[in-house]
Amino acid sequence: MAQATPKSMKKTKTVQEVIVNAVLIFICIIWTLPTLGVFVTSFRDRDSVLDNGWWTSLSTPSEFTTQNYSQVLAGKDYSYTKSDGTVVVSRGDNMLGAFLNSITVTIPSVIIPILIAAFAAYGFAWLDFPGRKILFGCIVGLLVVPLQIALIPILRDYMKIGLNGSYLGIWLAHTGFGLALATYLLFNYISTIPRSIMESAFLDGASHFTTFVRLILPLSVPALASFAIFQFIWVWNDLLVALVFLSGAGQTVEVVTQRLLSIVGSRGQDWHLLTAGAFVSMLLPLTVFFALQRFFVRGLMAGSVKG
């Protein structure tokens, strides 16, 4: 290799490129297969789902149906025959209301912790006050606390102040559980903003608040967006926190994951509905991810790359 001429180097390079691409494509196929299977299944009817593998249906695309999606979105029908022969049909829950609820829960649960964490990150990075290091150390330490241990105590606190089953309650809960990571990530970013930029702002007589709002927030958009993706995915997909803090409010304030769980029918496993429901629930987080993707990398990395 050391004696390689430019020509043979070029040749090895092409060979390398082919291998690299082949391996990469192979990995990508493996990565997609599980999701593809669910996607295909969501268009098949109940009996054929239980009868044979989803890949067999690829040869008969005409049998695909969108019935599952309409059942998931509009509500599943239950029918049974009464003793006098009449058929009673009742409509189950639909996913549309749950979708709106999830949005109501998710958006503030993403923005509030970002706001609070950004303020805190700025404070830890650029303000001098006693106990700064200890406090920050504690916050990083809290990264490890499993949120399960907080559920019951917080539930009892909420009972005293009447926050159970309210949106504010679940926003604050998500804020509390996401805040440690948010502060940690945003600190990574904000602390690496060159000191000179800040000092010029202070020379102009700006307060910390102004500097933060006018200068730091816009500069931190990549970091904010990357955390936003994280928190969005986490809140949207959360089941446990919703189960605990929204439980008292009844089915009218159910989120998508809760609804997905109830689709697992009482009659065996309704694979055809489950797969469709799973896909509906994935749509929004995937969209958000692809929309904000370009920020993601820059924001997350800023701090740790330098290190």
Binding site: I116, F119, A120, L127, F129, V145, D157, L172, T175, F177
Partner: peptide, 13 residues
């Protein structure tokens, strides 16, 4: 700047 974050983390975690 730091107070809200510390208060919330204190309460929740």
């Amino acid at each position: 700047f730091v107070g809200p974050a510390v208060a919330i983390l204190g309460w929740y975690l």
